[in-house]
């Protein structure tokens, strides 16, 4: 096999792997924003997922339980944001910023409290680390497949089921939902909890599927990139998934190019996915329309 082909294969597999956490978080963003809550806290929910997955894997020795813990603690933070954003009519952006501070600080605090070492956790059991293909593990493959199933399921849920219809109505005009005899605040809360669960799963992927430990700042803004993916994907499950893969590609590209282009050092290339997200949201001038009540407390 020539270097060119193997390089392309590396890029392909790496794109798949790097996309996974962004896909989960972006799907979380879609469900939350479709219900009318902007979830800036995705980053914090990923952090919570990543950290708790490691803690519970360490505790139980079972990375599967770690994965479930990641999902659960993401959902817990989703509940906090959802509750604040609905029943307390909190400004969603400000509350999301608060969630991020709590999660990042909490994980750092927890590292010292639980493992007595700042910066990074000790190594734990990785989830199914056997190589399935040369570049990709069993766990990673499973999570890729699960991510696609989630995109499919969410799309089906939003457009085909009664609950999806109500969630859509919530994000467009919550008063209409009230008029129909339903409680839009509760619907929004459920949506944000689901959003947090998905983001938590994405975070857990980072810590126990891709590697086998948690380190401070390991989510590196992927939750924010996922928000950009939601916009770039026009608030649809498949659109957001596609956009997440697009941003994942740039993250993969950065790894593949490292050390290969002498005039472009790795520090500068780390900016690639963020630049891509910046250009993506700026390039949509006048062509996107958010759900009408997105970000508006009810």
């Amino acid at each position: 096999m020539s270097t060119g082909v193997s390089l392309m294969l590396t890029l392909l597999f790496l794109t798949l792997i790097k996309s996974v956490p962004i896909v989960y978080a972006a799907l979380g963003g879609v469900i939350s924003e479709r219900a009318g809550v902007v979830n800036i806290g995705l980053e914090g929910m990923m952090t919570a997922g990543a950290f708790s997955a490691v803690v519970f894997t360490n505790l139980t020795g079972s990375p599967i339980i770690g994965l479930i813990a990641g999902l659960f603690f993401g959902a817990v933070l989703g509940f906090v944001l959802g509750f604040a954003a609905t029943f307390f009519k909190v400004d969603q952006i400000v509350a999301g910023v608060g969630i991020n501070l709590v999660a990042l600080g909490g994980a750092a605090y927890g590292l010292v409290l639980i493992f007595n070492q700042p910066g990074a956790s000790p190594q734990v059991t990785q989830l199914a680390p056997e190589q399935l293909l040369p570049q990709i593990t069993v766990a990673e493959t499973a999570m890729i497949v699960l991510g696609l199933l989630c995109a499919f399921g969410l799309s089906w849920f939003i457009y085909r089921t009664p609950w999806g219809l109500r969630i859509q109505a919530c994000g467009e005009n919550p008063r209409a939902v009230t008029d129909a005899g339903l409680n839009p605040l509760r619907l929004r809360l459920y949506a944000v909890v689901a959003s947090g669960a998905l983001a938590g799963l994405g975070g857990a992927f980072l810590s126990i599927c891709e590697v086998n430990l948690y380190s401070d700042g390991m989510t590196a803004g992927r939750g924010f990139i996922a928000l950009a993916a939601v916009i770039f994907g026009r608030w649809t499950p498949w659109g957001a998934t596609g956009a997440a893969v697009f941003f994942g590609f740039f993250e993969a590209l950065q790894y593949v190019l490292q050390g290969r282009i002498s005039w472009l050092p790795s520090d500068a290339m780390q900016a690639l996915p963020y630049l891509a997200a910046l250009f993506a949201i700026a390039g949509l001038v006048g062509r996107v329309r958010a759900p009408a009540a997105d970000g508006v407390p009810y």
């Binding site: 604040a84 009519k89 909190v90 400004d91 400000v94 509350a95 910023v97 709590v102 600080g105 605090y109």
Partner: peptide, 22 residues
């Protein structure tokens, strides 16, 4: 651990966000 301070800061933001700024 000094990071406890940042958890507290985040919680303050969450509580204060309950006021409508906009």
């Amino acid at each position: 651990p000094k990071d406890a301070i940042h958890v507290i800061e985040g919680l303050i933001v969450l509580v204060l966000a309950a006021r409508r700024y906009f």
